Simulated assay, not measured.
Amino acid sequence: MKEEPSDICSQAVLKALYPLSKIYGFVVKTRIFFYEKGILKSVRLPVPVISVGNITMGGTGKTPVVEYIAKYLQEKGKRVAILSRGYAATIKQENSSLAENVCNDEYLLFQENIPNIPHLLNKNRVKSGLEAIRRFQAEYLLLDDGFQHIHLAKDLNIVTIDALNPFGHEHIVPRGMLREPLEELRRADMIMLTRVNQCSHDEIQSIIDRLREVARHVPVVETVHKPICLESLADAARLDIHCLHGKKVFAFCAIGNPVSFRKSIESLGGELLGFRVFPDHHVYTSSELRGLNTEALRIRPDAIIITQKDKVKIKNVRNLWDFPLWTLKMGVRIVKGYEIFENKINAILH
């Protein structure tokens, strides 16, 4: 799990940010109070809404969980649509059939993995929910990053918590990484603890004990982000993940949790010669990609490894690379509490 910086300068900055965190926390709690007391009204849509969100900033593994649930509902024969706010939607799509052709990396990821499930980007999730029902006859709506979106009533409220940094240093932004106080986890119907395979048994138990303190009886489901395969950018050929064992690799990514990506490569036996990290949702420029290839030339890896979230943004740049470029594709698997997950989902199915 991540630890806070211990040097004197960093501690001074954190101390200075503390009052801002208290102010932000007060605003957040006041807003929640207004909704709880009915001063502000939530809107209920005519079909069930399942929200997948988080309580911390950064990557908690939320996107693959949304995909997992979308596929689960589809396998049950249900028509489902995904509603996203469209955060960092700066990528222009050419030849798009949508009225709006600007999207983000998560949209492109869903488009590649679940192309037959509608995905609507709109800050107004009530409006996009009604549009999904009208245009696609959606029977269920999956609200991506919806825990703080109290304006839309939910039938199932799921929170993803990253085992590598579960509690955002126990402080609200900007002092820590919490988007709201930890006790607000009590609003959740289910917690999905992600990446449990990248922490020790004692660390996981410590997280669960803390969740029992703050979230009381909210059930916890444990999941892993499991490597599925390696995919060549050049020709989309799939390789077994064991091909990475013993390979010297250079990797780069622009995701919310680069530590998890690094751990995944190392767990498959890859020897990292270089690892470059960009901000989450970063859109690579041509010069940056050329610079990454130049960096790889200096260290001569057997291959360059990226995430699928990075691949969807650079898949049209195939001829730049002097080394094989492989995407490490991941999928969510529930390792503990599947019955809890199934019962919670099935309870709202009709």
Score class of each variant (00 low, 15 high):
V159Q: 03
A251N: 00
K62W: 04
Q198T: 10
A296H: 05
V27F: 05
V49N: 00
H201Y: 13
E222Y: 04
R135W: 03
Q11Y: 03
F261D: 05
Q93D: 09
I150W: 09
R44K: 15
T327F: 03
D155Q: 02
P118A: 11
G146L: 05
Q111P: 01
L83I: 07
E36F: 01
A12C: 15
K247N: 03
G256S: 10
V218S: 04
A132I: 05
P115W: 09
S96Y: 12
A303E: 07
K313C: 07
M330Q: 08
E94A: 06
E112L: 11
I23Y: 02
A237R: 15
T63K: 04
E131H: 05
Y68L: 07
D235Y: 01
L328F: 10
R31D: 00
S42L: 03
A188W: 04
F323C: 07
H282D: 08
T60V: 07
R210I: 05
A237Q: 13
R186T: 15
E139G: 01
L239K: 14
N343A: 13
V49C: 01
P166N: 13
I305M: 14
K37W: 08
S97L: 14
L109I: 06
Y87I: 08
D209L: 12
W326T: 07
P227H: 08
P118L: 10
T223H: 04
S264I: 01
I114C: 11
L109N: 09
A89Y: 02
H149L: 01
Q111W: 10
K29P: 00
F250Y: 15
F110C: 11
N54H: 08
L40E: 05
W326P: 10
V13T: 12
S21C: 02
N293K: 11
M330H: 00
S267W: 08
N319H: 13
P46W: 00
D322H: 14
S200D: 11
V65S: 10
K154P: 00
V65N: 15
C229Y: 13
V126G: 02
P118W: 05
A12Y: 11
H225D: 09
V159P: 02
I255V: 15
K78N: 01
A88W: 03
H169I: 03
T307L: 05
K247H: 02
Y338T: 06
R125H: 08
P166L: 10
S232K: 12
G59T: 06
E3C: 04
L120S: 04
V249G: 07
C253Q: 02
I255D: 02
V80N: 00
L320M: 13
E342Q: 14
Q111K: 15
L268F: 02
N104C: 04
A163G: 04
A89F: 00
